[in-house]
Amino acid sequence: MSTIVITLNGERKNVPAGASVADLLNTVGAESQNVAVVVNENIVRPDARASVLLQENDQVEILVFAGGG
């Protein structure tokens, strides 16, 4: 199976070619969390996560709300 390299939260990560944003969330254990996903500066809404496929060199951020003042 061929893989591509993306950057996830600042770190390089190999993912299967053809993987979607939803697949990535599953892989990292974030599928049931309330997260925001940003791919190359674009917000990927929950209803689009299954259909947006990751591409080589994508910059992906998975974000949550933590404590802050």
């Binding site: 939260n9 600042g10 990292v28 254990g29 974030a30 969390q33 309330n34 997260v35 925001a36 951020e61 998975i62 974000l63 949550v64 709300f65 933590a66 404590g67 802050g68 003042g69």
Partner: peptide, 21 residues
């Protein structure tokens, strides 16, 4: 209440305050 955006980390799921709040 205020909250802040942070990178998701599966080792620190308790940091995610959205659910409890």
């Amino acid at each position: 209440v205020t909250v802040a955006l942070r990178r998701f980390n599966r080792e620190q799921l308790e940091d995610d305050l959205f659910g409890p709040l």
